[in-house]
Simulated assay, not measured.
Amino acid sequence: MIAVEPVALEFNGVHLEPLSLEHVDGLRLAAADGDLWNLRVTSVPEPHRTQAYVHAALEMKDRVAFAVVDSSSGNVIGTTSYHDILPAVDRVEIGYTWYAKSVQRSHVNTSCKLLLLSHAFDTLGCAVVGFRTDNFNYASQKAIERLGAKKDGVIRHHAPRRDGTVRDTVMYSIVRGEWPEIKSHLHYQLSRHAC
Protein backbone atom coordinates (compact mmCIF):
# COMPACT_ATOMS: atom_id res chain seq x y z
CA MET A 1 0.00 0.00 0.00
CA ILE A 2 1.55 3.29 -1.12
CA ALA A 3 2.07 6.23 1.23
CA VAL A 4 2.41 9.56 -0.60
CA GLU A 5 4.13 12.27 1.42
CA PRO A 6 5.45 15.71 0.44
CA VAL A 7 8.96 15.42 -0.98
CA ALA A 8 11.44 17.59 -2.87
CA LEU A 9 12.56 16.29 -6.29
CA GLU A 10 15.07 17.75 -8.75
CA PHE A 11 16.15 16.93 -12.28
CA ASN A 12 17.23 18.68 -15.46
CA GLY A 13 17.04 22.22 -14.11
CA VAL A 14 13.62 21.73 -12.54
CA HIS A 15 13.00 21.56 -8.80
CA LEU A 16 9.71 20.33 -7.34
CA GLU A 17 9.13 21.37 -3.76
CA PRO A 18 6.09 20.94 -1.52
CA LEU A 19 3.66 23.78 -2.22
CA SER A 20 3.31 26.34 0.56
CA LEU A 21 1.99 29.85 1.08
CA GLU A 22 5.53 31.09 0.39
CA HIS A 23 4.88 30.25 -3.28
CA VAL A 24 1.81 32.49 -3.69
CA ASP A 25 3.64 35.48 -5.17
CA GLY A 26 5.67 33.29 -7.50
CA LEU A 27 2.56 31.47 -8.72
CA ARG A 28 0.82 34.80 -9.28
CA LEU A 29 3.71 35.91 -11.52
CA ALA A 30 3.79 32.55 -13.33
CA ALA A 31 0.06 32.76 -14.07
CA ALA A 32 0.47 36.36 -15.27
CA ASP A 33 3.03 35.12 -17.83
CA GLY A 34 0.44 34.54 -20.56
CA ASP A 35 -2.69 35.58 -18.60
CA LEU A 36 -3.32 31.87 -18.08
CA TRP A 37 -6.46 32.33 -16.00
CA ASN A 38 -8.25 33.41 -19.19
CA LEU A 39 -8.00 29.88 -20.61
CA ARG A 40 -11.44 28.32 -20.25
CA VAL A 41 -10.21 24.73 -19.95
CA THR A 42 -7.69 25.14 -17.11
CA SER A 43 -7.86 25.77 -13.38
CA VAL A 44 -5.21 28.52 -13.27
CA PRO A 45 -6.24 31.08 -10.62
CA GLU A 46 -6.85 34.74 -11.31
CA PRO A 47 -4.15 36.89 -9.63
CA HIS A 48 -6.39 37.91 -6.72
CA ARG A 49 -7.34 34.26 -6.09
CA THR A 50 -3.85 32.76 -6.02
CA GLN A 51 -3.66 32.58 -2.22
CA ALA A 52 -7.08 30.88 -2.04
CA TYR A 53 -5.91 28.46 -4.76
CA VAL A 54 -2.87 27.48 -2.67
CA HIS A 55 -4.99 27.18 0.50
CA ALA A 56 -7.43 24.88 -1.33
CA ALA A 57 -4.58 22.72 -2.65
CA LEU A 58 -3.11 22.35 0.84
CA GLU A 59 -6.47 21.47 2.41
CA MET A 60 -7.32 18.64 0.00
CA LYS A 61 -6.95 15.30 1.77
CA ASP A 62 -5.97 13.27 -1.31
CA ARG A 63 -3.62 15.77 -2.95
CA VAL A 64 0.10 16.42 -2.55
CA ALA A 65 0.86 19.68 -4.36
CA PHE A 66 4.21 20.94 -5.61
CA ALA A 67 5.62 24.28 -6.73
CA VAL A 68 7.64 23.95 -9.92
CA VAL A 69 10.79 26.03 -9.53
CA ASP A 70 13.50 26.85 -12.06
CA SER A 71 16.66 25.53 -10.38
CA SER A 72 18.97 28.21 -11.77
CA SER A 73 16.87 31.31 -11.04
CA GLY A 74 14.80 30.08 -8.11
CA ASN A 75 11.68 31.44 -9.82
CA VAL A 76 8.36 29.64 -9.45
CA ILE A 77 7.28 28.66 -12.96
CA GLY A 78 4.18 26.60 -12.23
CA THR A 79 2.61 23.91 -10.12
CA THR A 80 1.68 20.23 -10.31
CA SER A 81 0.25 17.62 -7.95
CA TYR A 82 -0.32 14.03 -7.09
CA HIS A 83 -4.07 13.73 -6.48
CA ASP A 84 -6.90 11.25 -6.21
CA ILE A 85 -4.49 9.07 -4.25
CA LEU A 86 -5.87 5.56 -3.70
CA PRO A 87 -3.43 3.67 -1.42
CA ALA A 88 -5.58 0.51 -1.38
CA VAL A 89 -4.94 -0.04 -5.10
CA ASP A 90 -1.53 1.69 -5.33
CA ARG A 91 -2.85 4.42 -7.65
CA VAL A 92 -2.17 8.13 -7.93
CA GLU A 93 -3.01 10.69 -10.55
CA ILE A 94 -0.83 13.54 -11.73
CA GLY A 95 -2.62 16.78 -12.45
CA TYR A 96 -3.49 20.33 -11.43
CA THR A 97 -0.51 21.09 -13.66
CA TRP A 98 0.16 24.43 -15.27
CA TYR A 99 3.24 26.41 -16.22
CA ALA A 100 4.10 30.00 -17.11
CA LYS A 101 3.65 30.52 -20.85
CA SER A 102 7.37 31.26 -21.29
CA VAL A 103 8.31 27.69 -20.26
CA GLN A 104 5.55 25.87 -22.10
CA ARG A 105 6.84 23.70 -25.00
CA SER A 106 10.23 23.48 -23.27
CA HIS A 107 11.90 20.69 -21.29
CA VAL A 108 9.91 21.63 -18.16
CA ASN A 109 6.79 19.48 -18.54
CA THR A 110 8.67 16.36 -19.63
CA SER A 111 11.19 16.83 -16.79
CA CYS A 112 8.41 17.28 -14.21
CA LYS A 113 6.51 14.25 -15.45
CA LEU A 114 9.69 12.16 -15.44
CA LEU A 115 10.33 13.21 -11.83
CA LEU A 116 6.77 12.45 -10.70
CA LEU A 117 6.43 9.21 -12.64
CA SER A 118 9.82 7.96 -11.43
CA HIS A 119 8.93 8.75 -7.85
CA ALA A 120 5.49 7.14 -8.22
CA PHE A 121 6.67 3.90 -9.83
CA ASP A 122 10.26 3.50 -8.61
CA THR A 123 9.98 4.86 -5.05
CA LEU A 124 6.32 4.59 -4.02
CA GLY A 125 5.63 1.35 -5.89
CA CYS A 126 2.51 2.52 -7.69
CA ALA A 127 0.68 0.04 -9.90
CA VAL A 128 -0.84 2.77 -12.05
CA VAL A 129 -0.56 6.52 -12.55
CA GLY A 130 -3.52 8.35 -14.03
CA PHE A 131 -4.06 11.67 -15.78
CA ARG A 132 -7.24 13.57 -16.60
CA THR A 133 -8.06 16.64 -18.62
CA ASP A 134 -10.91 18.66 -20.07
CA ASN A 135 -12.31 17.22 -23.30
CA PHE A 136 -11.64 20.58 -25.00
CA ASN A 137 -8.08 20.91 -23.69
CA TYR A 138 -6.47 19.46 -26.81
CA ALA A 139 -2.99 20.72 -25.91
CA SER A 140 -3.14 18.84 -22.60
CA GLN A 141 -4.41 15.69 -24.29
CA LYS A 142 -1.52 15.80 -26.78
CA ALA A 143 1.00 16.39 -23.98
CA ILE A 144 -0.34 13.42 -21.99
CA GLU A 145 -0.28 11.21 -25.09
CA ARG A 146 3.33 12.29 -25.84
CA LEU A 147 4.25 10.92 -22.41
CA GLY A 148 3.07 7.49 -23.54
CA ALA A 149 -0.10 7.35 -21.43
CA LYS A 150 -3.01 5.35 -22.83
CA LYS A 151 -6.49 6.80 -23.15
CA ASP A 152 -8.86 4.97 -20.80
CA GLY A 153 -12.04 6.76 -21.83
CA VAL A 154 -14.24 9.78 -21.23
CA ILE A 155 -16.35 10.49 -18.17
CA ARG A 156 -19.26 12.54 -19.45
CA HIS A 157 -20.70 15.56 -17.62
CA HIS A 158 -18.03 15.13 -14.95
CA ALA A 159 -16.79 18.42 -13.50
CA PRO A 160 -17.73 22.11 -13.47
CA ARG A 161 -15.67 24.67 -15.34
CA ARG A 162 -15.12 28.15 -13.96
CA ASP A 163 -17.56 29.58 -16.56
CA GLY A 164 -20.43 27.47 -15.20
CA THR A 165 -20.44 24.87 -17.97
CA VAL A 166 -19.80 21.20 -17.18
CA ARG A 167 -16.93 19.41 -18.83
CA ASP A 168 -16.45 15.87 -20.01
CA THR A 169 -13.19 14.48 -18.58
CA VAL A 170 -10.73 12.49 -20.68
CA MET A 171 -8.94 9.84 -18.58
CA TYR A 172 -5.48 8.38 -19.27
CA SER A 173 -3.13 6.04 -17.43
CA ILE A 174 0.26 4.37 -17.37
CA VAL A 175 0.55 0.95 -15.70
CA ARG A 176 3.69 -0.35 -14.01
CA GLY A 177 4.58 -2.76 -16.82
CA GLU A 178 4.67 0.12 -19.34
CA TRP A 179 6.89 2.31 -17.18
CA PRO A 180 10.39 1.05 -18.17
CA GLU A 181 9.80 1.73 -21.87
CA ILE A 182 8.11 5.08 -21.19
CA LYS A 183 10.94 6.10 -18.86
CA SER A 184 13.51 5.35 -21.57
CA HIS A 185 11.46 7.26 -24.12
CA LEU A 186 11.15 10.35 -21.88
CA HIS A 187 14.92 10.39 -21.33
CA TYR A 188 15.36 10.07 -25.11
CA GLN A 189 12.99 13.01 -25.72
CA LEU A 190 14.92 15.16 -23.25
CA SER A 191 18.28 14.19 -24.77
CA ARG A 192 17.05 15.47 -28.13
CA HIS A 193 16.12 18.82 -26.61
CA ALA A 194 18.93 19.28 -24.10
CA CYS A 195 18.71 22.48 -22.11
Rank of each mutant, 00 (worst) to 15 (best):
K151N: 14
V24T: 07
R132Y: 10
V166C: 04
D90F: 11
H157A: 10
A57K: 13
T110R: 07
E22V: 10
V68Q: 01
V92S: 08
K113R: 12
V68P: 00
E46L: 05
H187Y: 15
V128G: 03
L58S: 02
T42E: 04
R105P: 05
R28A: 01
D33Y: 06
G13V: 05
C112S: 01
V175A: 01
I77L: 04
A149V: 08
S106F: 10
V170G: 02
T133G: 15
H193P: 00
R161S: 11
H23R: 03
L86Q: 09
I94S: 12
G26Q: 10
R162F: 13
T165E: 15
R49G: 11
L124C: 03
H48N: 12
L115Q: 09
N75W: 01
L27N: 00
A88Q: 13
F136V: 11
H107A: 15
H83Q: 10
E10S: 14
P180C: 09
E178S: 07
A30I: 00
A52M: 11
S73G: 03
D70C: 07
G13M: 03
Q51A: 15
N109M: 13
V76C: 02
Q51D: 06
D35R: 15
G78Y: 05
N137S: 14
D90M: 04
E59R: 14
K151G: 14
V41C: 14
I77Q: 02
L39T: 15
H193I: 12
E5P: 02
I94H: 08
Y188I: 12
E17I: 12
S118W: 04
S81M: 07
L147N: 10
G26R: 08
G74E: 10
A100S: 05
L19P: 11
A31W: 00
G74I: 09
L21Q: 07
A67S: 10
Y53I: 04
F131T: 05
E145T: 15
Q141D: 15
K61M: 15
G130K: 00
R49D: 13
L124I: 09
A100M: 04
E46M: 06
H185M: 12
S72D: 12
D62F: 04
A8H: 06
V89K: 03
E178T: 00
D70V: 03
S43D: 15
L21K: 08
Y96E: 08
Q51W: 04
F131S: 06
L115R: 07
G153W: 06
A30D: 00
L115H: 00
S173Y: 06
L186P: 00
